[in-house]
Design a protein around this nucleic acid. Sequence first.
DNA 1: GAAGCTATTTGCACTTAGTGCACGAATGTG
DNA 2: CACATTCGTGCACTAAGTGCAAATAGCTTC
Lengths: 202, 202
Amino acid sequence: MSYYECMAMSPIPIRQQTRAVVRSLLAQTAMQLFAQKGFDETTVDEVAAAAGVSRRTLFNYFRTKEDLALSGLSEQGEVIATRLTDRPADEDVWVSLRHAFEVLDEIEASPENRLEIVSMLFDNESLRAGHAEKQARWTNLLAPLIEPKLPASEARSFEARAIVGAAITCLQAATEEWLRLRGSTPLFDLYDTAVAAIHASN
Amino acid sequence: MSYYECMAMSPIPIRQQTRAVVRSLLAQTAMQLFAQKGFDETTVDEVAAAAGVSRRTLFNYFRTKEDLALSGLSEQGEVIATRLTDRPADEDVWVSLRHAFEVLDEIEASPENRLEIVSMLFDNESLRAGHAEKQARWTNLLAPLIEPKLPASEARSFEARAIVGAAITCLQAATEEWLRLRGSTPLFDLYDTAVAAIHASN
DNA sequence: GAAGCTATTTGCACTTAGTGCACGAATGTG
DNA sequence: CACATTCGTGCACTAAGTGCAAATAGCTTC
């Protein structure tokens, strides 16, 4: 078998892996600068220079400047998704989602950094918007996974999207409140309050 | 009293009004072009030319190109807010919100145009993001209005934000589904399905 | 009507994000 | 060594958005 035939067959060749490493390194460098100088005050050229690559190369790894700051969110979404598939099939949807979300507490960096990063995400308008969009993508990822848990219905996939969307909204609201309280209350205490609030029928 | 003293006192002078009219006209022109050629394929210069103003003037009325397409959403949010204040104080929060949202059916343009506009909003990534962000702003607008309806609690304002956020998410999910069905099912039937889904306890 | 104040418009130069293209370097293959 | 392919890079280009200063139009006062 020739090299290129092999390359065409193997789904995860070495090249892909090194690419992933470089990508992660670039994002890390960028986040450091963003945290230090602020997102708007940091130019892509500065990030490229700090990482020791050309501006053009940076755009080979990340579609936009926003992606440099938000690529972590996509990964988080995927981790949540895999965690969600591990939950028992007959578990309540909201309980499953809550457990899946909890990986965020395990994944995320040190608590101080976390506050810093979240602050940055909410300070900048386009980042807030991108953040909201990324969470909408989570819905696409997670909804199919909880759909089998719902009672049969013609609109089941739509219902699944509504539920996941609402859960993510609770997580979002909890994160905002957590930020406002500067981390003094555990994120998931706030999340539980939010979920209880939308379930209470006045 | 001199003219300028008068100008300084009157809170809504003629100038402000004409400015609002021009703004609306500009947005209208832009939306026409966006619907015709697509958002990304239309440059700000083209919009300015079509409206008969300079590029620079356009940016005096709208902070960004996105705002040209999304300014309508802010207005909608305000209309929903005023409608919400008209609801009886002892009405259930979800019922009040549902009634307030219903103004969208009255406000929006002709049904065909509506599909066209919503399609445009969801086709483009940055517009989707902006859309999500604008809806987050609705939360800031609406949450204080329903807060008094909630039972007393130390976290009441936070709970209000979670509820409003969830309701908006249902509206968002319903709109997506409505778009997918190309308008064949009334938007608020879908909205009710979504709300019922997040309230059902498996 | 003349003079004057003010908000608005506009042109111009500038920064930054992002893209298309083509060339050269690195890497692994036969 | 000759090779294919991917990757990094430079360059030129488009488009969004900003700051500044000059021009202009609307209205008032004299």
